[in-house]
Design a protein around this nucleic acid. Structure first.
Length: 425
RNA sequence: GGAGAAAUGGCAGAGCGGUUUAAUGCGGCGGUCUUGAAAACCGUUGUACUGAAAGGUACCGGGGGUUCGAAUCCCUCUUUCUCCGCCA
């Protein structure tokens, strides 16, 4: 969440930022409500503190009086303390109410967009940051979309997934399952080579973790929830991996902290229907390798560049046509300050598929998470970043469609040693 | 799942109702000494909120209670360890 101190001294900048996120004048009042709640909390605390200080002083005096055998005097002071305690109860309550309101309001405010973020209402307004300059693959007539190819070559089976679980849970089989495993290993190896520590995290997290990275309360409806144990299935490895550093004071020398994790990701995708979600375009469970960084604030945008280069490198090696978008204020995630999306060309569907989202959250997550470091004796919040590198399902879809031939699907060279075969047929 | 034990600062570990402003040791940081380092010695060393500052308040796993006063007593939850059961 936004830092209260920042809001207090930069109200106008906050308002400009939220306007980029298309906040109405009415919605912008949340800032004033926050500042008001803070004021109330402070007033209550100042009174409460002096009340408690007085009680404490009296308690010490009583100790002395009792030791000296001055019972009458001690009783008189006890009566004073009782009165103070009555008042303290009210003050404590006032402070609690104000604090809770403050926290609640802060949670509803998204991150402020970076200066470079374009204005816009929807995905249509995103800026093409890096276009695909070379020609797109030219498929022969009769080329099939990946869901038809999947049947032809037994790559994955959606009907079977429906039988086992429900719609949106693909079952990969044979060479398809092997390809899945190959891509995971390839992505993890590339991330390790780039200096990311490999993490194999839990696939379920508690509410505190989900709140820290911003899934709660904003995306509660998008996560699977295990009520019996009060746990959430992770929508991305970002959640457990970033939370490794929750409530940690990090030694500045460790920056940049780079971690990668492969996990299956679970998303309810409530409200998504229609042709654009066919096949692997949108599923409830998919494999993804995520890269996460926790860095010094001064270097976060430089590190973001590095992450873009890393993801670009993966797609180059997979020989897939892609473009990079800079998301506009209306399409950015709640917690992000700047997000670049990678989209891969899916030749038979003739559309771009999002395969990676790389973001700098600045201090938005670290403030919720309390990831800090000491900067010359002063505590400062670190910056957090993450990106997909990469999400598998749609990569598989694009590889299948773009590389289809009458003999089968020709896999890019870089995968051959991982799959043990060159043609998926 | 059952029985027992435990949870204190970066770590180890004392304290078990009233100068706890949490002892002591280790580690960290600064200094003296040294050509440099080590050793030794001296000093310093948590977080949050609040305050212009001095200072104040809270925090000894979480929550609640007893008391004028709680790290210390009581209740409750959680976690860890040991043993038993079950099990990949």
């Amino acid at each position: 969440m936004l830092e209260l101190g920042f809001l207090k001294s930069n109200k106008e900048r906050a308002i400009q930022g939220l306007k980029k996120r298309n906040f109405s004048d009415e919605a912008l009042q949340v800032i004033d409500h926050i500042l008001g709640a803070d004021e109330m909390r402070r007033t209550a605390q100042i009174e409460l503190d002096s009340n408690l200080a007085e009680s404490k002083r009296f308690a010490g005096e009583i100790g002395g009086l009792l030791k000296a055998g001055n019972l009458a005097e001690a009783e008189a002071i006890k009566a004073k303390v009782a009165m103070l305690k009555e008042q303290a109860k009210d003050l404590e309550n006032a402070m609690k109410v104000a604090s809770e309101r403050l926290e609640e309001l802060l949670l509803t405010v998204p991150n402020l967009p970076h200066d470079s973020v374009p204005f816009g209402k929807s995905a249509d307004d995103n800026e093409v940051y890096k276009a695909w300059e070379k020609p797109l693959p030219n498929l022969a007539t009769g080329a099939l979309p990946h869901w038809d190819l999947a049947k032809k070559y037994n790559v994955f089976d959606l009907e079977l997934g429906t039988k086992l679980t429900g719609a949106g849970f693909p079952v990969f089989r044979g060479k398809g399952a092997r390809l899945e495993r190959a891509l995971i290993n390839f992505f993890l190896d590339e991330a390790s080579r780039a200096g990311y520590e490999e993490i194999a995290p839990p696939l379920m997290v508690n509410a505190a973790s989900a709140r820290a990275t911003g899934q709660l309360p904003d995306k509660e409806g998008q996560m699977y929830y295990v009520e019996r144990d009060d746990l959430y299935l992770i929508p991305t490895a970002e959640v457990p991996v970033t939370n490794i550093f929750r409530d940690e004071i990090v030694d500045e020398k460790l920056f940049p902290i780079k971690m990668t994790g492969y996990t299956q990701c679970f998303r309810r995708e409530a409200g998504s229907y229609g042709a654009h979600v066919r096949g692997l375009n949108r599923v409830h469970q998919f494999d993804k390798v995520e890269i996460v960084q926790i860095v010094h604030p001064d270097t976060s945008y430089q590190q973001l560049e590095g992450m873009l280069a890393h993801v670009s490198g993966l797609l180059d090696k997979l020989e897939l046509p892609y473009r990079i978008l800079r998301l506009c204020g209306g399409d950015m995630g709640f917690t992000s300050a700047l997000t670049f999306d990678f989209e891969v060309w899916s030749a038979a569907q003739e559309r771009w598929l999002e395969v990676s989202s790389v973001s700098n959250f600045e201090t938005y997550q670290s403030n919720r998470m309390k990831v800090r470091f000491k900067d010359g004796g002063k505590m400062r919040l670190a910056h957090t970043l993450n990106g997909s590198a990469l999400a598998l399902a749609r990569i598989v879809a694009a590889l299948m469609e773009n590389n289809q031939t009458p003999e089968g699907i020709i896999l890019p060279k870089v995968l051959h040693s991982y799959t043990g075969f060159e043609v998926l047929n």
